[in-house]
C-alpha cells in the first residue's frame, strides 16, 4: 500500500487459541497499583524454567 505503512499486523489472531496459563502473572512484576497486561509475553515458546522431573 502506498499511503498505509503497516508496522505490525493481526496480533490478536496469532494468540487467539492459546490461554495455557503458564505465563507470568502481571502483578508479580513491577506494577502493583495498576493493571498492565499488554507488555507481558506469551511463554509458550520459551518456558521460564526447565521443570525438574519428580524423583
Amino acid at each position: 500500500m502506498k499511503f498505509i505503512k503497516t508496522i505490525s499486523k493481526k496480533i490478536m489472531s496469532k494468540t487467539f487459541k492459546t490461554g495455557c496459563g503458564e505465563c507470568q502473572s502481571s502483578c508479580q512484576s513491577a506494577c502493583k497499583t495498576s493493571c498492565t497486561v499488554g507488555n507481558q509475553t506469551c511463554i509458550q515458546e520459551e518456558k521460564i524454567h526447565k521443570i525438574e522431573k519428580p524423583e
Binding site: C23, C31, T41, C42
Partner: peptide, 19 residues
C-alpha cells in the same frame, strides 16, 4: 515498564480479556 509492548507475540487473547 509502562512503555514495554510486544507486537509480535504479546500475551494471549485470554490474558488480554481478563487482566
Amino acid at each position: 515498564f509502562h512503555f514495554m509492548i510486544d507486537l509480535e507475540k504479546g500475551p494471549c487473547f485470554n490474558k488480554r480479556m481478563t487482566g
